[in-house]
């Protein structure tokens, strides 16, 4: 009798614990359902309709928004241009990674070991500034008439007029903005390498460049991969570059800028929703690839 009572009491305790736990996760779950799940369903519904903002009218279109996006030259030119620009700007990611790696290696060098913290704080500084402020100051520095770069070198490079120069300017700016974050990630990965590896290499008389390429680099590949993937995911969503830095110039219009122009400015919500779904699917694929590959890498180790 007693034993059964005890058992049911224990059962009750676990039941109330489970109830409480469910309650504790309720808000994030509700938030996710409302702000992500329902919204995603709505985006899908939007993409199949033509919604006229001014007349508040819906019309069923099927997949016409999608086919317009890719085949109707009124939209597809801008959409493909946005995709092309966004992809080109992704080239900045490996550049940023190399800079981050170089800075982390620089911080590790014996010569500045004592002032390590000082340099680390300063190298990371660009990462805390807002994208808007960074875009504004670089917009001024790159200004074709009186910008610092043209003034200093006495050149007249029209950074904002030429679509390729504009993209290169964006990459330079993003490399500056990203170098602190990239450096910290590389540094953390480097510091996690057991020092015994290097000691063993020292005994073998390996040079520091050899140590870098045979020990450091292979052991931090998971971090580099992580940086690449998060960089791609972030880069696919870039918006301030197009809006603030390039002030809407064709040469740097990105996918998200396209969504903003059509969805919010011009009220073509159906078309913009279709574009945002294409972007979402793309990002999901990249994320899933990361998931699969990083698991594989952890096991191979």
């Amino acid at each position: 009798m007693n034993a059964i009572a005890k058992k049911t009491k224990k059962h009750d305790i676990h039941k109330s614990e489970r109830r409480t736990a469910q309650l504790f996760i309720a808000l994030p779950v509700i938030g996710f359902c409302v702000f992500t799940l329902l919204t995603l369903i709505a985006v899908f519904a939007f993409s199949l309709m033509d919604y006229n903002v001014y007349r508040e009218e819906f019309a069923w279109l099927g997949f016409k928004n999608f086919s317009d996006l890719f085949t109707n030259s009124i939209y597809s030119t801008a959409f493909f241009r946005a995709i092309g620009n966004t992809m080109f700007l992704l080239l900045g990611i490996p550049v940023g990674m190399i800079v981050g790696l170089a800075l982390a290696a620089l911080l590790q060098s014996r010569a500045i070991k004592k002032c390590n913290k000082f340099f680390q704080v300063l190298f990371y500084l660009p990462a805390v500034t807002s994208a808007v402020a960074i875009n504004l100051v670089f917009r001024y520095i790159f200004n074709p008439e009186y910008g610092l770069i043209n003034n200093l070198f006495n050149t007249h490079i029209a950074w904002f007029k030429d679509p390729w120069l504009l993209k290169i300017a964006v990459i330079i700016k993003n490399t500056w903005a990203g170098m602190g974050g990239n450096m910290i990630l590389c540094l953390a990965a480097m510091l996690a390498i057991p020092s015994s590896y290097y000691e063993a290499a020292d005994i073998d008389g390996a040079s520091s460049s050899r140590k870098f390429f045979t020990i450091t680099l292979p052991l931090i590949t998971p971090t580099l991969f992580y940086m690449l993937i998060t960089g791609i995911i972030g880069g696919l969503q870039s918006y301030a570059d197009a809006q603030v830095f390039a002030a809407g110039e064709n040469g740097a219009q990105t996918i998200v800028y396209f969504i903003w122009v059509y969805g919010i400015k011009q009220g073509k919500q159906g078309l913009a929703s279709a574009a945002s779904l294409v972007l979402a699917i793309f990002i999901m694929i990249v994320t899933l690839v990361q998931f699969k590959l990083s698991n594989k890498w952890v096991y191979e180790d």
């Binding site: 709505a42 696919l236 996918i255 919010i264 919500q269 990002i283 999901m284």
Partner: peptide, 22 residues
């Protein structure tokens, strides 16, 4: 539940912006 919540992290804000705005 963990995977459920985690799946939200791969949905870009730009994709959710339009219905939310409306």
């Amino acid at each position: 539940w963990l995977l459920f919540l985690m799946s939200g992290m791969m949905v870009p804000y730009a994709a959710l912006m339009l219905p939310q705005y409306r």
